[in-house]
Simulated assay, not measured.
Amino acid sequence: MSDHEHDRTTPEPAAGPHSVPGPRPAAGGSLRKELPDEVPAPVSAPTPTVEDGGTPPEPPGSDLTGRQRLVKGLWPPRITRAQLIVAVLLFGLGFGLAVQVASNSEGDSALRGARQEDLVRILDELDDRTERLEDEKQGLEKQRDELENSSDQAEEARRQTAEKERQLGILAGTVAAQGPGITLVIEDTKGMVKANMLLDAVQELRAAGAEAIQLDGVRVVAGTYLSDSGNGVSVDGNKITAPYRFKVIGKPQDLEPALNIPGGVVQTLEKEQATASVERSAKIVVDALRPAKQPDYARSSSP
């Protein structure tokens, strides 16, 4: 082949409708790799804005210290819905605890404001009640021992039964009684004393160990009821008016302090512009009687 023939270039085939023109051969018989005219820059994530909940970008050239960055991150605060719900629940819990503590404090305010001699008197009254219960326990144990050791148990049983009947008769109001006690007189010139105040006095006397109570000729027993009746009070259907006179049998050293405790019967009556006077006595006679009522259905279970 001649040099002229080498210099001749073979014609390229015609490009078809789907053909891609290939790279043209470079001078010297080698192919030149062509680069694209523009290389696209990598896409970076968008910077969060303040509206999206992100931190606002710092201005260029700012040089913040660690403390300044901390303050900037905490303020202004960004409160979420969950944090708001937790805050409301904690506030409700704290308010409930505060109300409970306040109610307990009000219940103890009477004793907290009492004088030292009043507290000593209340403590002595509690000691006296404990002593009475211990004496009752010892009496019952003594009766049991007498029944177990007596040679004539039938006679001892009859004697104890008669004694028990007498004691129950006093409590039921069917038997007259006498013994040491107090007399309580309540003057009510303003007409402010109501049935509930007299009932409080009865309950306070019973708690202090009263064994027999008589109110203006009416024997007070377990089933006694009091109600307001015009300008007076009705006791078991019997109307009484001021001055109200209580005759109480019991230990005077226990009965009188029970009426004079702070916030007790005497102070309550004084707030209603009434006066109450208590007098101890070595002999109180309670002679108002109640008829013995035969039960309609209950019967003794003993043979």
Rank of each mutant, 00 (worst) to 15 (best):
P46I: 08
L123W: 04
T47H: 07
W75P: 00
V50E: 07
P46F: 04
R69F: 05
D145Q: 13
A176Q: 01
T130Q: 14
G179R: 01
V101H: 09
A157F: 06
G173C: 03
V86W: 07
S62R: 10
A162M: 08
E117V: 10
E106Y: 03
R132K: 04
L140P: 07
F91K: 09
F95Q: 15
R81V: 01
D127M: 14
R78K: 04
V101N: 09
L147N: 05
E134I: 10
E148L: 12
V120D: 14
R69Y: 01
L97T: 13
T55G: 06
T55R: 14
Q83Y: 01
S109D: 05
D37C: 06
L119E: 03
F91R: 07
T65K: 06
T49Y: 01
P48W: 01
Q68N: 01
D127R: 15
R121G: 08
A45L: 11
G61L: 05
T65N: 08
V86S: 09
P42T: 14
P46V: 08
R158G: 02
E117D: 15
E38K: 14
L89S: 07
R129W: 13
R166K: 07
V120T: 13
Q153D: 08
E125Y: 12
G66Q: 08
R144I: 06
K137N: 09
L123Y: 05
L140S: 13
R112Y: 02
A87E: 09
E141D: 04
R67E: 15
G139D: 09
L90I: 08
F95C: 12
T174D: 00
D108R: 13
P60Q: 11
S109W: 10
G54Q: 00
A114K: 01
E51D: 05
A177H: 00
D127Y: 04
D124N: 11
A102Q: 10
K137Y: 14
E165R: 12
K164D: 03
L64I: 10
K72M: 03
V43F: 02
T55P: 08
S105C: 04
T174W: 00
T65M: 05
I122C: 09
E136F: 05
L123E: 12
Q83I: 01
W75M: 15
D63W: 07
E134L: 15
D135T: 13
R121H: 01
K137R: 15
T130Y: 14
G61I: 01
A82E: 10
P56A: 15
A177R: 00
G73M: 05
R159S: 07
D118I: 03
P42H: 02
R158I: 11
D152N: 14
L133I: 07
G53S: 03
G94K: 01
T80A: 12
R69W: 07
V120M: 10
E163Y: 02
D128S: 13
D127H: 12
L119D: 10
Q68H: 07
